[in-house]
Amino acid sequence: MFTIRVNGEDHTVDVPADKPLLWVLREDLKLTGSKYGCGQALCGACTVHVDDQPTRSCVMPISAAEGHNITTVEAIDQQQIGRLVQQAWQELNVPQCGYCQSGQVMAATALLTENRSPSDRDIDEAMSGNICRCGTYARIRKAIHKIADEQL
């Protein structure tokens, strides 16, 4: 049995210790916003915040997630910057297939929370762990700059 705190609520799950957080979120807590893309922390589609740090939930054993505050895309609108990211993403038609965008939104929210006026280099360093096969990178960059320039 493991108890994890997700989006401000405690959840107790009876799963093997090595079951990755991603699958606990998706299967046990029915929070399917975080996506499976590679299972090896290579693509970033599963990104959640663990104590506000972007973390690849597909490689984090549930046993390691205990005692931490986990935030998923489903609750990122509880943060002002998360809301701004979601709005800018919509305004600029960032998503295409959208599958990677939960992870992109989580990564971008963490970046803008940490750094309210990120340079292109800062964006590259924060966002290059998130693959987008549809190639929405240019719009993601534009949206991050737009938020920083106009709203922060």
Binding site: T32, Y36, T72, W89, Q90, N93, G98, V105
Partner: peptide, 22 residues
Amino acid sequence: SKQRKDAAEKVNGTHLYGIDVD
């Protein structure tokens, strides 16, 4: 140039793909 109808769902995790079916 209209905004995508699915954009909101695709940034808040509620958009359902096949993999999300339960």
